[in-house]
Amino acid sequence: MTWTIYLSGEIHTDWREQIKAGCAARELPVRFTSAVTNHEASDAAGDVLGEENDSFWRDHKSARVNAIRTGNAIENCDLAVVRFGDKYKQWNAAFDAGMCAALGKPYITLHDESIIHPLKEVDAAAMAWARSADQVVELLAYIIAAD
């Protein structure tokens, strides 16, 4: 079986590439999906539907277009990794974790100790909390090897 892993959250570091490289080095049977990680492209996803003068409506249209991709990816994943960075608040990542919980999709949170408290509910529904991409790879290797 090839596992589909949805990578959600913070877009300003290379955590996705670290996980992908670690899984490739272990030759794990995985396929990765993700939201659009180019911030400008994500913000402009709804622009094809017409120009907006009000940023609320531009964001609203783009969020709905992006939700087609993210909703489908979450529904079709076997497991999600939800990354929270310490520099920006990733409201979208919290929403993705909530979708996973609502759909019964297992997820692993990835964040450092400094934000344990604000993420306590998100972590409580997660199957595991990792502090590094290496830990995520170790978890995936164990989970998939048991397959």
Rank of each mutant, 00 (worst) to 15 (best):
D112G: 14
I143D: 04
E138M: 08
R64M: 10
V82Y: 04
Q18F: 01
A141N: 14
N92M: 01
A44C: 11
R26V: 01
E17C: 03
F56L: 15
C23Y: 01
A41L: 11
V48T: 06
M99T: 06
K89A: 08
S42T: 05
E52N: 05
K89H: 06
Q18W: 03
D123G: 04
G98K: 10
R64P: 00
V48H: 12
L139N: 03
G22F: 04
N66M: 14
T37K: 04
C100W: 14
D96F: 02
E52Q: 15
N66H: 05
S114L: 06
G50S: 02
I68W: 09
A125I: 00
R26P: 00
G85C: 09
L7I: 04
G71T: 04
H111R: 03
V122P: 05
M1G: 14
V36T: 15
R83A: 13
V136H: 10
K105L: 10
A94Y: 02
L103E: 05
D123R: 03
E138S: 15
A141G: 02
N66A: 15
E51A: 09
N38A: 12
Q90H: 05
Q90N: 13
I144P: 04
W15L: 04
Y107V: 03
P106A: 09
N38S: 08
K20H: 00
N76E: 14
T2I: 06
P106W: 09
G46H: 11
V36I: 15
I144M: 09
V136D: 06
G85H: 07
G22S: 02
A45R: 04
D112F: 04
H111S: 12
V65K: 05
D96R: 00
A101K: 08
E121G: 08
V82C: 06
A41V: 12
